[in-house]
Nucleic acid binder design. Structure first.
Lengths: 148, 148
DNA sequence: GTATACTATGTATAAATATTCATTTTGATT
DNA sequence: AATCAAAATGAATATTTATACATAGTATAC
C-alpha cells in the first residue's frame, strides 16, 4: 500500500542518510516492503523530497515544504501524542493547540474527519482505528515527536 | 571564472524555473558564460541547490539558510504587519500567531523585549521606537511581507 | 454480475546527473 | 620568469533518476 510505504520512507530518511533510490529500496525491503526503483522515484516526487548536496554526497530530506515546515516549527509546541479508537489526541503547550490544529488540518485533510482544538489540547477524529493509527504516525513524524 | 558564474547561476534560478543542467548551460551561454554540464553539476553541488519536485517537473532552488527559511516558510501565515510606538503588531491567519512568534523570538531575540501571541495576533515589544522600526523592517523581510 | 475509468505498479529505456581521469589554468614562492 | 601545488574544467563515462508503455488492481456506475 502506497501510504504505508510513503510513511515508511519519511521515517527512513529521517533515521539515516539515504543517498540513492537503491538505498531506499534496500531499507524498505528490510521493513518488509518490496518495490522497484520506479515506484520509489514516484514516491519521492509525491513526497517532494529533495536531495541536498554537500561535500560528500547528497542525501534525501523532506522538502521544506510549507506545511511540513510549519510542522517542524511547531515541534516544540507538542508535548504528547496518543491514540484511542479512531481518535488521536495531541497535547500541546498552552495556547499552541490552534496552530497545531491548523497544520494538521492542512496536511492531513484527506485522512481526517475533523479536529477540535482547545487551548492546549487537540482532538483529531478519523474514520476508523486503522486510519487513526496512520494519522498518529504522520502526526508524530510531522511534529518530530520523540516520546514513547 | 567560478565566482561570477555561480553568482549568475543564483540569479538565473531566481528569475526562471530551471529544470535541468542543460537549461542552465543555455541560460549561462546567453549571459556570455560557456561551460559544460560537468561544471554546472559541480557548481550546483557547491551552491547546495536543491531540485524540488512537483507534479509537473522539478526545479532548482537555493536551499536557504535556516532562519530565513523559517520566515519564508511561514510567509503565507502572515496577513499584516504594523507598528505603533515601540510595538509591532503582526496579524496572522487563525491559529498561526504562536508559530510566527516562535520564529520571531528565535531570530530577533537580541532586539525585542518580548512577544505575546494570541490566536491570530502577535504583539512584539521593543525598547523604543527606533528599535521597533528596525524590528518591523526585519519582520517584513523575514516573512516576505508585500503590503503597503 | 459487467463495463468503465482511475490508480498503482513493474519493465525497459530514456534522460539527467555525478564522477573519473587528463589537461589546463591560476596562484604562490622563489 | 620558472617551478610547484592546488584548483578548475572538459571529455568521456558511470551512475542515478524519471518516464513511456503495458498490465494489474480497485472502485464506481450501470
Amino acid at each position: 500500500m502506497k501510504l504505508n510505504r510513503q510513511t515508511e520512507i519519511l521515517r527512513i530518511i529521517k533515521e539515516r542518510p539515504i543517498k540513492t533510490h537503491d538505498e531506499l529500496i534496500y531499507e524498505l525491503e528490510k521493513a518488509g516492503i518490496k518495490v522497484t526503483q520506479a515506484t520509489v522515484s514516484r514516491d519521492i516526487k509525491e513526497l517532494r523530497l529533495v536531495k541536498v548536496p554537500s561535500k560528500d554526497g547528497a542525501i534525501y530530506v523532506a522538502s521544506r515544504d510549507e506545511d511540513e515546515q510549519r510542522g517542524v516549527e511547531l515541534k516544540n509546541s507538542v508535548k504528547m501524542i496518543r491514540r484511542a479508537m479512531n481518535n488521536v489526541v495531541v497535547r500541546t503547550f498552552p495556547g499552541m493547540a490552534g496552530a497545531v490544529a491548523a497544520t494538521v488540518d492542512n496536511v492531513m485533510s484527506d485522512q481526517i474527519l475533523g479536529s477540535i482544538a482547545g487551548d492546549d489540547t487537540l482532538l483529531i477524529i478519523t474514520s476508523d482505528e486503522a486510519e487513526a493509527m496512520q494519522v498518529e504516525e504522520r502526526v508524530k513524524l510531522l511534529f518530530d515527536y520523540k516520546g514513547e
